[in-house]
Design a protein around this nucleic acid. Structure first.
Lengths: 228, 228
DNA sequence: CGTGTAGTTGACGGAATTCAACTTACGTGG
DNA sequence: CCACGTAAGTTGAATTCCGTCAACTACACG
């Protein structure tokens, strides 16, 4: 888990990113997260925590991208979620992590002891409310993930692109931080199907692909239509 | 988790002391659900609450079976969960229900105002803990649902049967309360595929089908193998 | 006994996977 | 700077799996 990775340093970041607060969490509180925590860095593909390890920490992503995943006994991999800067992850209701977390790109996180947050929450009902809200968003995210998984390949990919575009919220061009394999494992498809579906979408002028990781949403209405 | 200490999910405790609460095993609390609530009955297929309605109540199922579902704009239906006697549902973190709930069979529930429970939880950290644990189980349930949905039809059906058998916990014969359509919408398959898969499993001697709703698990190992 | 609902089965077509070849991007060392 | 090696992504052809459409059976209820 925490142990086997990379340089601890970079306290400079600490103050720089204290203002970078995701919209959902009120500002003053979010800072407290940074105040309490330690900054840590993880190299691309490094494991942040493993499945079944005790869930001792909460992580707030400062930069980079993180995925949570689970390896099934036949080797297939399911990706539970992608986390972007500002997101908080590692959040479990149980004492153990159900999925592992890995850095997709080099990533910087702020780490706080879960027990500390819970102690705070016990005293401060406002913190408690926020934990509650986080859980609610997690439930909602999972529900939407389930809805994606019952659809056709086109619908899944279109839905995924819209989700990412909404989260990254760069006008219409999205730089995907994750590989085709990651996307495939998130959507329950194969890389070939993801790849083919993207070129189909490109041919139908719904998107453009300047490079394999950069995607321009040309026609959101068409994507949303696919998203049914 | 909660499973055996929680009283929220234990219907049999009804008559225990509601006032005296032993510190270690807070039995009396559970009854509080029944104490606070009103009993209500719903006929087969009746709606208990609708999508997007304000989430004013919590429901503890006394008898019967309940499903939560969501209708997509193209008419498809996704079933979020099945609830069996003892289960608590209607539990939302947001102020609105994300899915509707319907009685699959005639059902009896105990209804309590959410605000009352939350008020209680604010004063009694033990109640709060139980709400928390319930949420945790819900998250875990959803995660397992996601895991089902990335698999093949055989794996989904096998996984579903094992899940139901574990929850109904009647030796090896399970009486399914829900229709093939319900199962299909839960698993993201068609009724035909569910039906065919069941007969395939029967032909491979993994299960027996004395009647369409009654299923005998003949070879759990084989089912678990399919469940990968 | 007929009617309606639920479930099963068959034939067929389409969608996604599999296996394989090929292209592109990228870094490293000669 | 280029040649090379590797990892990531794309494309093609064959196959498998699941959905669709339709017919048929089982069963409950009037």
């Amino acid at each position: 888990m925490l142990s086997h990775t990379t340089n601890f340093s970079d306290t400079t970041n600490f103050s720089r990113n204290a203002r970078f607060v995701p919209p959902a969490i009120p500002r003053g509180r979010a800072d407290s997260f940074e105040m309490m925590g330690t900054s840590m860095s993880f190299a691309r593909n490094a494991e942040i925590y493993g499945e079944n390890e005790p869930a001792e920490y909460l992580y707030k992503l400062v930069s980079g991208t993180v995925r949570t995943s689970k390896i099934l006994n036949d080797g297939r991999r399911q990706i539970g979620a992608f986390y972007l800067p500002g997101d908080i992850f590692g959040f479990e209701v149980s004492t153990e992590h159900g999925l592992s977390a890995e850095a997709i790109t080099d990533a910087k996180v702020i780490v706080v002891k879960r027990s500390a947050v819970e102690a705070l929450a016990a005293r401060d009902s406002d913190i408690a409310r926020q934990l509650w809200a986080m859980t609610g968003r997690e439930l909602q995210r999972m529900q939407e993930h389930i809805l994606l998984l019952i659809k056709s390949a086109q619908e899944r990919v279109a839905g995924f692109l819209l989700e990412m575009a909404a989260r990254i919220k760069s006008s219409n061009e999205v730089e995907l931080p994750m590989s085709r394999q990651d996307i495939a494992d998130y959507l329950g498809l194969t890389i070939e199907t993801v790849s083919r579906t993207l070129t189909t979408l490109e041919n139908s002028a719904a998107i453009a692909l300047p490079s394999s990781r950069r995607i321009v949403l040309r026609n959101r209405a068409a994507l949303r239509r696919l998203n049914a």
